[in-house]
Design a protein around this nucleic acid. Structure first.
Lengths: 144, 144
DNA sequence: CTCATGTTTTGAGTCATTCAAAATACGGCT
DNA sequence: AGCCGTATTTTGAATGACTCAAAACATGAG
C-alpha cells in the first residue's frame, strides 16, 4: 500500500525530469496513477486524502492538469465517464471499456503500429492522432 | 431554411417508425440534426427557438435522449466537447475532429469494414463496438 | 539560508446534463 | 369529429466534473 523510498525517488525523478517541482500532492497523485491506471480525479483524491488530509479535489485537478500538459500522464475521456489518467504515455495504445461496469483495460492495435489509423478520406484534414475505444463486456459482467 | 411539406412528412415518418409520438419539438430537432450533423444540444436549441419560442434546452435534451435510445440518432462524445448528434446511425463510421476549431467530419475506416477493430488481446472482453476519433487540423486551420 | 516563483489551498463559479413535478398535447378510440 | 389516457414538454431546481481567481504556502536556485 505504501511506497518505499526508492520508489518515491523514482517518482520524484520523473516529476523533475519534465521540469516540474516535486511536492507531496504530486508524488501522491503519481503514485496512485502508477498503482491503479485508468483512475479518475475523484478516486485519486479519495486515495490520497488519507495520507494528505489537507488536499482537495481541485488540487488533484491542478496536479493532473500539470502532469498532462507536461506529458507525464495521459488523459483519456471515454464516453459516459469522467476523465481517466494513466502513465503509459509514449506508445499509442487504445482502450477497451466494459459497458456494464466501466472497467478499463489497455489494448494494442491488432494490425501493427497504426495501420487502420490512416482513414481513406480525410476531407483535407491533417491528421495528428487517433483515439480508439472499444466497448464490450468484461469477463465478470459476461457471466452476470 | 424552412422545411417543406414532404420533408416534414418524412421526418414525421422516421419518428413514428421507432414508436415515438410526433411532436413539434421532435420534428424541429430532427430537422436541425439532418441539416447540420455533429451539432450539440445548445446549438440545436438556439436553432429551433426561433420557430418554437416556448422551448428550453432541457426539452432538447429530452428529445435527444428519446431519439438516441430509439436509435433514431447517434450520440458521439469527443473529448473536450459536449455531446454531438448525427443521423447516420446504422453504418459504423468514425469521425475526425479539428483540434483547433472543433469542426467534425465523417470518416469511413480505410481498411474495409472493421478490420483493425479486432484488437490482438482483449483481456477476455466480449467486444460490442468500437469508437474511433481522429484529431487533426481542418483545411481552414492549416493555413491560419 | 533566503527569496522569487511555482504550487496548493480555499472558495466560488461554470458548463453540460439530469431529475422531478406540474402542465400540456398526441393519437387511439368511440 | 371529439374525448381521454398516456407520452411528452415545460418549468425549476440540482448534480457532476471541472475551471477560475486570489491568498497562503513551499520548493529549490542562488
Amino acid at each position: 500500500m505504501t511506497t518505499d523510498v526508492t520508489e518515491a525517488a523514482a517518482l520524484a525523478d520523473s516529476i523533475r525530469s519534465v521540469g516540474l517541482k516535486v511536492t507531496e500532492p504530486r508524488l501522491a497523485v503519481l503514485d496512485v496513477i502508477e498503482r491503479e491506471p485508468h483512475i479518475d480525479a475523484e478516486r485519486i483524491f479519495r486515495s490520497i486524502r488519507i495520507s494528505l488530509p489537507g488536499t482537495s479535489v481541485q488540487a488533484v485537478h491542478g496536479v493532473l492538469a500539470a502532469f498532462s500538459q507536461a506529458g507525464l500522464v495521459r488523459r483519456i475521456e471515454p464516453a459516459h465517464s469522467p476523465a481517466l489518467y494513466e502513465r503509459r504515455v509514449d506508445d499509442n495504445h487504445h482502450h477497451i471499456v466494459c459497458s456494464a461496469c466501466g472497467a478499463v483495460e489497455d489494448v494494442d492495435c491488432a494490425v501493427g503500429h497504426s495501420p487502420c489509423l490512416i482513414p481513406s478520406s480525410v476531407s483535407g484534414f491533417q491528421i495528428q492522432s487517433a483515439e480508439v475505444n472499444f466497448w464490450g463486456l468484461c469477463p465478470n459482467c459476461q457471466t452476470a
